[in-house]
Design a protein around this nucleic acid. Structure first.
Lengths: 191, 191
DNA sequence: TAAAATCTGTGATGTTTGTCACGCCTACTT
DNA sequence: AAGTAGGCGTGACAAACATCACAGATTTTA
């Protein structure tokens, strides 16, 4: 159990925008603590998506399950990341992706109503979310580029360089679902 | 030459946030018209990136050139799209990507200084850019998903379904650079 | 602690895709 | 009108990768 979740969130936000104590009190009122166990689903495809989740601790996968029940991992999210099915969340549609825990996970959840109240009530927070969204967009472009420029081995090395911890926290077969290669090919890369 | 660029930009913004005449006058003062010819570079890798570009007419490619001089197209942008090397723009770094015209192209450019003035002066515009950034992020995730779930043929069919016009406006060899397949493989897909 | 499930590696084989090479056609240029 | 460059298709071959099958090791569960 995280000892001081409020401090974690505040530090995270203040890397982008400074807040007074009063402002942070206003902010924190919009969030709700939740915790999930390993293998548990936070969002199931088809669900109505109420919340975006700030990960306080743990590790989750955002994935799409195709017609033949194969999982395709769009992204991992761990400490200090925001995750949800963003399309479903902002457009108020049913989830196409699922979000499931690879470890026990604690989150702050933020409903869309509270998201809007927060942005309207405190312009700094709209700016904060804009910066986060831009960072997410840039990260996705890097991932696209790795598919265009790199083969399986280079994508794998790229991943463990950027997130060395993942290798310890996630089975290789799961990494394969993120890299877009079969687990056998990934295994044969050696090293 | 576009007859009424101001109206195009205003209509585009008002799909997200409504503006008074006074507000739009304030907004438009931050933009500068520019035009480029087919094959011309708007941004070259290594440049200092001053502007983000709103495409009024025409078609551009955002691409990365690797060590062996191969181009990898991260995205196409056409009418009503915003494009730049976002990482270089927001972080004030040198461009890693290049931006070049596939057709004669007219743009409104917005410098980072003006972007910040605009967001600070009119909260609605910060909201507008947040919505645009979210849409960009979601679009990138769809593209990632197509690499994970689809082979060359399915990615190609997916692309022409989503943007039928591209097939008429762009040579197939260029589409191949976007799809991440060789032009020979794309040619052999037939149909 | 025994049983079941998960994780990983590896061989054999087939499919997909990349690379190199060539030729045809069209459009633009001088 | 001749020359040049770009766009497109295609054959031959090699490389990368997927799939199926099996086995040993580790972890989880009952």
């Amino acid at each position: 159990m995280i000892n001081n979740p409020k401090k974690i969130l505040r530090d995270h936000i203040e890397k982008v925008v400074k807040l007074t104590d009063n402002e942070f009190d206003f902010v924190i009122g919009h969030f709700a603590l939740q915790s999930f166990k390993k293998t548990q689903f936070i969002i199931q495809a088809g669900d109505h998506v109420k919340d975006v989740f700030f990960i306080l601790s743990g590790l989750v996968k955002l994935f799409y399950m195709d017609e033949s029940a194969k999982q395709h991992i769009v992204s991992f999210a761990m400490e200090d990341w925001w995750e949800t099915d963003f399309n479903a969340y902002y457009a108020q549609r049913r989830a196409v992706f699922s979000l499931a825990c690879l470890e026990n996970t604690e989150t702050y959840s933020l409903s869309l109503e509270n998201f809007n109240r927060l942005c309207n009530g405190l312009q700094k927070m709209e700016h904060f979310f804009l910066m986060k969204s831009i960072a997410g967009h840039i990260g996705s472009q890097e991932r696209i580029l790795s598919f265009l420029t790199s083969d399986a081995r280079a994508r794998y090395e790229n991943l463990i360089n950027k997130s060395p911890g993942l290798l310890q926290r996630v089975p290789k077969a799961t990494l394969a679902l993120y890299l877009g290669v079969s687990r056998e090919t990934l295994s044969r890369l050696g090293s």
